[in-house]
Amino acid sequence: MTDPTPVGRLPVKLHRHVCLVLTEDAVLAEELLARKKLAQEVAGRLTDRVLLVRPGRVDAVLEELRRMGHTPQVVGGGG
């Protein structure tokens, strides 16, 4: 069976090699941002539970998360 032909090509802007932290809820994201060392590695907040990490700083974020006692699921290698 072949793949169905796409109905239409969707206009999209691609963002590659993005470092993100996804939290279970907004309160947890707030908790992370309250940690000064972690907050300085966060470039911005995409939504209330998605944090954008500054490029090249993902190792520092992982280290700080683990220091806080979290056990983050790491997707895409590293850590």
Partner: peptide, 17 residues
């Protein structure tokens, strides 16, 4: 507990219009 935080080290995001 591990499911509470997910870190994507090199994600690809699609931004639609």
């Amino acid at each position: 507990k591990r499911e509470r935080i997910t870190v994507h080290t090199s994600a690809t995001l699609l931004e639609f219009g």
